[in-house]
Design a protein around this nucleic acid. Structure first.
Lengths: 191, 191
DNA sequence: CCGTCGTGTGAACGCTCGCTAACGTCTCGT
DNA sequence: ACGAGACGTTAGCGAGCGTTCACACGACGG
């Protein structure tokens, strides 16, 4: 699962995806125009339709790609870390790394999900649910016993904490921010 | 600072604000039409312009109102709690209460800030900055010494954690969610 | 009783947007 | 050498949007 793939013939395509993510994060899906995306990617307007079937299709590919990347990463971590403590730490580090590296994708994912067509939205939700379940399982195996609602709330709270990056890390070094977020997240889910 | 005021002559106005918040939270500012807001509020389309100067003006009043409400609440807490521990706990409880009570406002505030006209956006940002500074000050006075960047990141992370409510608390009782979020937030900022 | 004001209406204007159409050009495999 | 296909362009369409306009109607102070 390569999120930044780039063999020669797909360079323009990837560029469009990157610029679209930046613009969606800044202005929202409905606040971004096809012409704007094209201009940012160095082509003009309708050239986008040579690479994507529609504006919604572009968003769909972006969000499905993110969800698959995250779920894949989480599954790899589960396989590599049988011990609960190490697994949870690795999950936290993985999410922190992603949030610090691609903050625009974090923003778009939880802001413009509702703009997806029904089938893509269901697909993304299913992937997200699987991802959350891995977290919930890791949280249950660590720390004090809690009921399902508490664990669910804790998992989402941890995501919210880590994903606060786009609002705060603009002027902070990634190393400092990453260390702070990781230790805060672990302290929070251990409470 | 009354967020849900409602003397007789302003009832329609408040209803419009409430419905607009719901729709903005669901579809985003640019994804919501004036006609849609009117329909949700029981009037049709252009009647909105009897109460607000423009769609942007409506959003501005909403976001400025939220920021003022929060800052006012935080200042009251500061005055009432000179001791660092009690103050931080009260700030956390206040934010948790707000996030659980009005999740749509949380969503709109950090999603559609960029859609504000320049002057309102500056005003909201100034109010938010003052609010964050109160949190930073309370965090500094509690727990281990940290530098400015760490405290800034910690404050935003705490907001992200608490404000995760709109994504998780839909099917959980407010009491359970509130308790979990408050204890997680305190554990996180103490890390 | 009446003029004014607050609040509503439907019609229309002007603009922007997503998308399609028609056409040009460069790259290649045969 | 040349036809095909990938990729780009500009022009234009139809729809939806925010906003304004002209008008209607009930409440109410003089």
């Amino acid at each position: 699962m390569e999120l930044t793939a780039g063999t020669a013939p797909t360079r323009r395509r990837d560029q469009i995806l990157v610029e679209a993510a930046r613009l969606f994060a800044r202005h929202g899906f409905h606040g971004t125009s096809i012409d704007g995306i094209g201009a940012a990617a160095g082509v003009s307007g309708p050239a986008i339709y040579r690479h994507f079937p529609s504006k919604e299709g572009l968003l769909a590919e972006m969000l499905v790609g993110i969800s698959e990347y995250l779920l894949d990463g989480a599954r790899t971590i589960v396989a590599a870390h049988p011990d609960p403590g190490g697994r949870l730490t690795a999950l936290v580090d993985f999410q922190v790394e992603f949030a610090l590296t691609r903050p625009e994708l974090i923003t778009v994912q939880d802001r413009d999900l509702a703009s997806l067509p029904d089938d893509s939205r269901r697909r993304v939700r299913a992937l997200q649910r699987a991802y959350v379940e891995i977290w919930e399982d890791a949280i249950i195996r660590t720390g004090p016993p809690r009921d399902a609602d508490q664990v669910r709330t804790a998992a989402h709270a941890a995501f919210g904490l880590i994903n606060s990056t786009p609002r705060s890390a603009a002027h902070t070094s990634p190393e400092v921010a990453g260390a702070v977020l990781a230790s805060m997240a672990l302290a929070a889910v251990g409470a």
